[in-house]
Design a protein around this nucleic acid. Structure first.
Lengths: 364, 364
DNA sequence: GTGAAAGCGCTAACAT
DNA sequence: ATGTTAGCGCTTTCAC
């Protein structure tokens, strides 16, 4: 339907003649508008130097033949694709859709898109990453909870800027943004202890996840210091079912806990359900439960989960800022942005009144 | 660090010299491996004709300089990008992350990726679509609940195959895959009525959404025929809060319902919470509640929501099949695939025993 | 302000 | 089996 070839007779068919419905190109628009191909290009670029009436004419012609610029051809030259990769490990956890939602909306306002790389739990992250690199994305945001060990290598291989969100890693010099998980863990332990709890337990997430590890470290440190005993610990695998199982196992203990801090909300919800329904306990009367993240469901009255909110929107703002900073200065020293979170007091934890205000911990 | 230029003195710098860290290209690999550039290309293509030892050599050289093929340059020629666009309207509804998860995992097994287009509720869909088209995606899956009116136009402008998932549209000849929403509505009305309910109510989703409309049509038809009265209807906007509000308004009625069918699970969950917590009612003793979708949360014991399951995995399989069929035959008549769903019986609805088996409705 | 020409990194036809 | 060559659709000098 376009192209410079003459009438298509049956003879050696070139590739483009074989294409049934090839998309119109800037060349087609140029022909239709009676201008040069480069004029079309300029008409579609923001600061392009074209006379207003020429641009008008070109845009009309483009409209008429349903022309849309090919972003890949453009990116070959500009070296920008307008795509940001989001690497997630467990989109089933509602925290990630919230990140995805926030991120994609922020990006869209500046004409960018998110390409999702949904890596499964056992897939080695570096393999996934080389899959990402092919796409020449302008930046990579990794929110995967997978063991970060190979990220070190990655950051060397990558020409695209990388930022880890909601996790950190010691071994590699990489930009990161996260909550102050360590302080949060301490804060929550103190909160529980201050309110008269004597046996706080911790429900951990995935083994290798820095977030869970840090929250645990802070929590355990305070519990140990103040009670002289290690907190009970169960593994919840960052899933709802894991939370259910963790609660069960915690209560098989001879001295079961009187309060539980789960390393994320989805586990806390599982804990809550197991406590109330399977074990017939009253929350918060018998046991206090605190989560982490503040996903939407946490606010639903059936759960009314007291939790530690991560500042998702700010975290993403920071991630995008780090990304663009690294674009302009690839050699800049890696930054580790730590944002403060907020305790959100609801009904799943019995906390003493002197702490009942919305308090905020400072960033470390 | 690469490129064919000589030593970089300060003079008119070409674009590539200005780039600090330009990625290695196949040319760089060719030079490193002592072969031609096209040999490199072949080494990276699946059926490429290269001697095994040459390929080895090339891959090693590529590895050494961290070369990754540029997918955009490739797509310029092959006319395939390996990207599938997923257009969603409300990723906050957990049904969509489930779709996204399933889709992205299926695509990844065949080396494809999903690019997410997360359009906000008020954004005109055709604008969003022209954003999609720039990306030359191999296919577009629209799972947006937005008023479909402009999709008609769209399908004409689009050279990429399009399939609507979880919605249909009369005005445009477009491939669609969905549940048999109409039959499902009828089925659920009969189920409720058969179990002794006398005043079934319906909680509708977004006004323009075909899914909600069809479910309502089937439901209302049966209720009207069997009880002689229209069912009560409230609008829930496809959100949790909408469900809460809908339940409230339903019970402001002089003759409140004894059973509620919500057009999706997230609303049903809102209904449940409002019923139990705000209105102090017992579910299912006082009121039966049925949802639609069977999102993960529906199975949680706190809710134990009886619902009508959509066959997500099969729907996506069909969508991908339709997409690839349309690639090979762009002129094929649009297909409207209708898949049967399944009732999932849990505890939120009081249903009579003779219906207590997992029953399945046939596709229309 | 506009057009001609070069070339982004790659694949595919064509020689060899 | 390998290299040479011609573009894919676009942006960007460079003349005019």
């Amino acid at each position: 339907m376009n192209k410079k070839n003459g009438p298509t007779l049956v003879k050696k068919l070139s590739r483009q003649e074989l294409v049934v419905h090839s998309k119109p190109t800037s060349r087609d628009v140029a022909r239709a508008a009676g201008v040069s191909q480069s004029a079309v290009s300029r008409a579609f670029t923001d600061g392009g130097k074209v006379a207003p009436e020429t641009r008008e004419k070109i845009l009309r012609a483009a409209e008429a033949i349903n022309y849309v610029p090919n972003i890949h051809a453009r990116s070959l030259i500009t070296r920008r694709t307008g795509m940001i990769a989001l690497v997630v490990g467990d989109i089933t956890n509602p925290f990630y859709p919230e990140i995805l939602d926030t991120l994609s909306k922020k990006l869209q306002t500046v004409g960018q898109r998110v390409v999702l790389f949904n890596i499964s739990r056992d897939e080695p992250i570096d393999l996934a990453i080389s899959g990402v690199l092919k796409y020449q994305v302008d930046g990579i945001i990794i929110a995967s909870a997978l063991p970060g060990i190979s990220i070190a290598e990655l950051s060397l291989k990558t020409y695209s800027p990388v930022v880890l969100i909601n996790r950190t890693i010691r071994s590699a010099p990489v930009d990161t943004v996260s909550c102050d998980n360590f302080s949060a863990g301490k804060f929550l332990a103190n909160l529980l202890l201050d309110s008269g709890h004597r046996r706080p337990a911790f429900v951990a997430g995935l083994a290798g996840a820095s977030t869970s590890v840090e929250r645990e470290r802070g929590f355990r440190e305070v519990v140990l210091a103040r009670t002289g005993k290690e907190p009970l610990i169960a593994n919840g695998d960052f899933t709802y079912q894991g939370g259910v199982d963790a609660a069960r196992s915690l209560f098989e203990n001879k001295y079961p806990p009187d309060s539980i801090f789960a390393a994320n909300d989805i586990m806390a919800l599982g804990v809550l359900d197991a406590l109330r329904i399977e074990l017939g306990l009253n929350v918060p009367k018998d046991v206090s439960v605190i989560g982490f993240d503040d996903i939407g469901t946490a606010a639903w009255p059936s759960y009314s989960l007291t939790t530690f909110r991560q500042p998702v929107s700010e975290m993403i703002d920071e991630a995008l800022r780090l990304l663009s900073e690294r674009i302009s200065d690839p050699k800049r020293k890696p930054a580790n942005v730590v944002l403060p979170g907020t305790i959100v007091l609801r009904k799943s934890a019995r906390l003493s009144t002197k702490r009942q205000r919305k308090s905020q911990i400072a960033s470390a």
